[in-house]
Structure formats: C-alpha cells, structure tokens
C-alpha cells in the first residue's frame, strides 16, 4: 500500500486552483455577490476554515508572508493549525505582525491596525448567506438577491428595535456593498464592520461547506444596514485593555476568579504586544521585572 501521496504546492491540485481562481475573479468583479464554487474536501473539517484555506491555497505563492488569526489571536489552536498547514504545504514565511503580512487569513476578527494597499484579508465564513436565517432555502434567497429584495432583512432588524429597543445583532451584522448586494461579513463583531468600508486591502471570503466565494475589492463602499432613527453603532467598552491600556479596540473579557473578578484584554494579540513593546502599559500589564523592583 502506498498511501503517502506527493502533494502539490499549497496542497490543491492545479485544476482545483484554476477553478477557485476563476471564482475569485468573478467575486472581485461583482462585489458582495456569492459565487458558487466546487469546494473540495480539505484535510481539516468543514466548518473549521476550509473555505478560507482553499482561497488562501489558490492565491498564495512563495513570495507571500502569511498571518493567521482566530478570534483576533495568532496563538489560538485553529490559527496555529492552519498556519502550520501552510508552512508545511507551501513553505511560506509566516508572521504574527499584521503590517508584515501579505495575506492574513482570519476567523471572526479584522485586525485593529488599518490594512494597507497590496494586503489581502481572507475570511473564513461559516454561513455566507445573510438571508439564510430569514429564509432557509437557497432557491428563494437567490431570487431575493437577483431582485434586490432585501425588505425581509430590514423587517428583521426593525423587529429587534420593536422588541429590544435596539438592533440585537451583535456579530455577522449585515452590510450592503456598493449599494447593491447585502452581504454577510462573516461572524466578526459589528465593531469591525467600519473597517471593511473603503479598506485599502482586498477582502476575500471563502465558505467551503456552503461552496461560496465572495469579495470586496479595495476602496469599496461597505455600509452596515440601519435606520435613520436607529443608526448603526459599534460596541464600546467601559474599560481599556488591562495589559496595554488601549481603548477604541475590541476586548475579550477574561474571568479571573469565581467571585465576579474579571478584566478586559485586547482581542488582537499582535496589536496588544506591539503597544506594550512601545511602552504602553495597562492596569495589570506591568513588566514583572519592574514590578519586582
């Protein structure tokens, strides 16, 4: 038995890459439209980033520097696993520094540091269809996109306001791209939505299990849906990061004990580390050496 195969550069065979590359080009030409593609079985499970991995595998080359984040952090287990996969099958240089990366694959966050020209952000998407939870049938949602019939989405958001006094969607908050397609930004917190608008980076979205690829080119209008009397707003945190003191960033709550003790730390670990290296210190972030003195 000879089960050990010689895998191609970046794992995917060239024919699969061509198919995905064609889908990416269509996605770029029709911002926000979900292009069907023939997703392949990947050596990691569906739902764990196979769409993002296929997009990255189809665009990556030896000249690229790859960063992978999950929940904003480079060292979460799935980010580690995907980074190791590409280091192995594409022998690319990897980094945790946002500014150094040419390709950033992400699950659930957009880095705090504004992305620049030439950078590519690849999102892992679980459910690409923003209308899916309002209408489970693909045959129906496809028609709604074709006819630009997005009333149902507004009704849903408005029902939130009627019931809760505010829009109760906190992540995967729907956006409209270039005034045409309503798009799911993937389950990023709505805090990150404004970063998509007129970004200098190319944003590519891959949904493996759902067989869809979509894109937002650089300098493209991405507007979060809202109402005149209930404008879109992002989350605000009461406290700054306990390690680097940053405010105006997305924070994770860390439980310190079972008596309600908690603190907030940066979700974007690279941003936090860079700030601390530059001398910013939060309430609990004192350097242990200095603290000992």
């Amino acid at each position: 038995m000879n089960a050990v195969a010689q895998y191609n550069f970046a794992y995917l065979d060239e024919q699969t890459k061509r198919m995905i590359r064609r889908a990416i080009l269509k996605a770029i030409a029709i911002p926000g439209y979900q292009v069907p593609f023939s997703s392949r079985e990947m050596p990691m499970p569906y739902g764990w980033g196979t769409g993002g991995v296929q997009v990255t595998a189809s665009i990556i080359g030896p000249q690229d520097v790859l960063k992978v984040i999950d929940q904003g952090a480079d060292d979460t287990t799935n980010a580690v696993s995907i980074r190791a996969f590409f280091a192995k099958v594409a022998q690319v240089e990897t980094t945790t520094h946002t500014a150094e990366a040419t390709i950033i694959q992400t699950r659930h966050r957009i880095p705090e540091k504004a992305l620049g020209q030439g950078q590519i952000l690849v999102y892992q998407v679980p459910i690409p269809e923003p209308l899916r939870f309002l209408e489970p049938r693909e045959t129906e949602t496809r028609k709604m996109h074709a006819l630009e019939e997005y009333g149902l989405m507004h009704v849903k958001l408005y029902e939130d306001i009627a019931r809760h006094g505010r829009i109760a969607t906190t992540y995967a908050y729907p956006v409209k791209v270039e005034g045409r397609y309503v798009m799911d930004p993937s389950p990023t917190p709505k805090f990150d939505n404004p970063k998509m608008h007129m970004s200098e980076a190319l944003q590519l979205f891959g949904a493996g299990r759902e067989h869809r690829i979509y894109a937002v080119p650089p300098h493209t209008e991405v507007v979060s849906l809202d109402f005149e009397d209930h404008p879109f707003e992002i989350q605000h945190f009461e406290e700054p990061c306990a390690l680097c003191g940053a405010s105006q960033v997305y924070l994770d709550e860390v439980i310190l004990d079972d008596r309600g003790g908690h603190m907030y730390v940066c979700s974007d670990t690279d941003n936090c580390e860079e700030r601390r290296a530059a001398g910013h210190v939060g309430a609990l972030g004192a350097d242990p050496m200095e603290a000992a003195e």
Binding site: G47, W48, Q71, H108, A172, P187, S267
Partner: peptide, 15 residues
Amino acid sequence: GFVEHLKLPHYVDFQ
C-alpha cells in the same frame, strides 16, 4: 464538521 466547529473558540462573538 459544522456541528463540531461549535467547540472552536467563539469568544469574540460571545463577548
């Protein structure tokens, strides 16, 4: 895959 992906970290959304 999709059922089991629920055990991946979701703390950003949960926050």
